[in-house]
Amino acid sequence: MEEKDKNNKKSKQIVLHIVTPFMLAAVTAGITAAAAIVPSDKLKVYTNIAFMDSLRSDPTNDDTGLVIKDNDIDTGYEGETSETGEVEHPAFGEQYAIINCDKLGVDVPVYWGTEQELLEHGACQSSSSAIAGTKGNSVISAHVDTFFSELESLDIGDTVTLITNYGKFIYTVTQKVEFSASNRKYIVPSDDSRLTLYTCKRDLLGASDMRVGVICDLTESGFYTEKEAE
């Protein structure tokens, strides 16, 4: 009997020694898989941003004739500002602003006009929408796998800053929206000064017909009054 008990104990020990590594492997693999989702998403975004365009020095798209112009937007202006001033209308395909928002993770260049080629370079503002600094709805969109990957993380009350070479405009998120691609309710002109940012809703099964975005009200308008002598 004692011998039988000893043998039972021995086999249990052996089984435990064999099963333990498998259990350890299963638990650690599960935790690793769950924890790796966010960093791998971020890595994908940063890789897309790094490789989404080819030569930035080649402004002309030979196929469409679109001229993409990058401008140096001064983000360090510390001079005097005024609530009113003159805007500088950009050409189609020209970078005219940068969106700065901590939650978006990166500084987003904004091009005037919406075009597939432009969306490869940054965010695009609809050329039929109000330019920053004028009354109306400024509508800006970007791809969800590049610059607007964190758009859904914006909350009501968050600050979004649009920096141009003629002024700095601060907006506060007042509404989070979701709409279908065919619904133009949030991207039509408005009477008040607002900023609408939107992108495709993430869909595991591929491209989504739904759009997600934020509506932001203008809280501070600062046209630059001190321009550098040329």
Binding site: Y46, I49, F51, R56, S57, D58, V106, F147
Partner: peptide
Amino acid sequence: NAYIVVSNNCDIFKFSALIEHGVMKKI
């Protein structure tokens, strides 16, 4: 423009894109 073209082509690890878009600042 010649220097810009050559320099951009020689930026084989795309550091300029990463720096410009604030990614390097984070990592």
